[in-house]
Computed example of a mutant assay.
Amino acid sequence: MERVVRLLTYNIQHGKGVDGKVRLRRVAAVLQRYNPDAVALQEVDRHLPRSYLRHQARALARYLGMHFVFAPTLSWLGICQYGLAILSRYPISEHQYYPLPGAHEPRGLQSASLDHDAGTFFLLNTHLGLNFQEREKQAEAIRETIRSLSGPVVLAGDMNTERLTFPELPVTPPGHLPTFPSYRPRFGLDRIFASRHWRITKAFTPPAGASDHLPLLVELVLAN
Rank of each mutant, 00 (worst) to 15 (best):
46 R>K: 14
27 V>W: 00
65 G>H: 14
45 D>L: 00
219 E>W: 08
24 L>A: 08
194 A>M: 03
72 P>R: 11
130 L>V: 09
16 K>W: 00
73 T>M: 08
81 Q>V: 05
59 A>F: 15
1 M>P: 05
204 F>S: 10
204 F>I: 00
174 P>H: 12
206 P>N: 03
203 A>C: 04
144 E>L: 14
29 A>H: 02
33 R>I: 01
14 H>Y: 09
157 G>L: 10
80 C>V: 10
142 I>K: 04
29 A>M: 00
63 Y>N: 11
35 N>L: 07
42 Q>I: 02
197 H>S: 13
92 I>Q: 06
174 P>M: 05
55 H>G: 10
43 E>V: 00
137 K>M: 13
195 S>Q: 06
18 V>M: 07
33 R>K: 08
104 H>C: 02
146 I>K: 09
162 E>V: 08
192 I>W: 04
58 R>K: 15
82 Y>T: 06
107 R>A: 02
63 Y>M: 11
73 T>Y: 08
7 L>H: 04
158 D>G: 09
53 L>C: 10
64 L>S: 12
30 V>C: 12
18 V>N: 08
212 D>C: 04
213 H>S: 00
74 L>R: 14
78 G>D: 06
53 L>N: 14
114 L>H: 09
217 L>N: 06
180 F>Q: 05
205 T>I: 01
182 S>N: 04
207 P>V: 04
48 L>I: 05
79 I>W: 15
145 T>G: 01
28 A>S: 14
